[in-house]
């Protein structure tokens, strides 16, 4: 070791690095990078996913996307979904976390229950909710006078939006809650006590003292929900299938249908998923920038 120059040492280090990374790198390149790259290649073709031949059409798919009303509608729907979902899921999760933390005796019990849905596949959970929306709620409305439940939870676009939000919140709030609880536990008690002594109400205490201290968790949770929200597929697919018509079609579902149904334009569909990727990238970058700046400010 002593005789080697810095240059040689660096070489050895890099060689070691490559050897240690090799297994991961190989599977990663084969099963992720290469498919992603060739996926992008198809975005430049007019391949219909079925024919043996196709032409390279350059960026015309991307030009066509600009005027594709259904695609932008699905983006709009996804945006709406993401905003509501991020808000609702985080508010619910934070409320649950605060409520649980304020009653330490019952913490374990409730935490266990609230996290449970997160363990179950959304395909399974979606079907269970389907039973509720198409059978149980109608039963309650018809036989027990809960008339306010008598809506078309799957069919009416407004209500099915609510249904989708309910189910996706059900599936994720537990996960977010666990993160918030951990952050809350990191807030030192004496800080809170000091605030109470100073005459702050619990409400003030939360917003002025606790909330700033759990901003890190907030960043993580928002990042996570944003990302999941933009790619939402399973929940909508099992509940409404994107319907009625295209009323609840998220981008991911729209892309899936473009690739596998109707005109089966696989090349065009991959062009769309490239656009989705870019949008997610931009939104995430902006969000990280904003929240991390805020975190520093505090």
């Amino acid at each position: 070791m002593y005789g080697t120059t810095a240059m040689q040492q660096k070489k050895i280090k890099n060689l070691q690095l490559i050897i240690f990374c090799a297994p991961a790198l190989i599977v990663y390149i084969i099963f992720k990078l290469y498919p992603a790259g060739s996926g992008f290649f198809y975005a430049l073709t007019n391949w219909n996913g079925l024919n043996k031949t196709y032409d390279i059409v350059g960026f015309s798919n991307f030009v066509e996307i600009l005027s594709d009303r259904y695609f932008w509608n699905s983006i709009l729907f996804t945006m709406k979904y993401v905003i509501v979902f991020v808000l609702v899921a985080n508010v619910v999760a934070l409320t649950l976390a605060v409520a649980i933390e304020s009653r330490p005796k019952a913490r374990g019990f409730f935490r266990t229950i609230f996290y449970m849905p997160n363990m179950i596949s959304m395909v399974i959970g979606g079907y269970m909710w389907m039973f509720i929306f198409t059978k149980a709620l109608y039963y309650l409305a018809d036989n027990h006078g809960f008339k306010w439940l008598d809506h078309s939870w799957i069919g009416d676009p407004n209500y099915s939006f609510i249904a989708i939000i309910i189910v996706s919140t059900w599936g994720t709030a537990g996960y977010l809650m666990i993160i918030y609880i951990a952050a809350l536990q990191g807030v030192p008690d004496n800080v809170k006590e000091a605030a109470v002594v100073d005459g702050a109400s619990p409400w003030q205490c939360f917003w002025r003292i606790t909330f700033p201290l759990i901003r890190h968790a907030l960043t993580i949770c928002i990042f996570w929900t944003l990302n999941a929200g933009f790619q939402v597929f399973d929940v909508i697919y099992t509940l409404t299938g994107g319907g009625p018509g295209r009323a609840t079609q998220s981008v991911a579902i729209h892309i899936y249908e473009e690739a596998f149904r109707g005109n089966i334009r696989y090349g065009y569909a991959t062009a769309k998923s490239t656009v989705l990727f870019v949008i997610v990238l931009i939104v995430t970058a902006i969000q990280l920038k904003i929240t991390s700046r805020k975190e520093q400010e505090w």
Binding site: S152, G155, D156, P157, G243, P244, G245, R246, A247
Partner: peptide, 10 residues
């Protein structure tokens, strides 16, 4: 799709 939407009057 459109008939579904027609049914829900959108």
């Amino acid at each position: 799709r459109l008939l579904q939407e027609y049914y829900v009057k959108t």
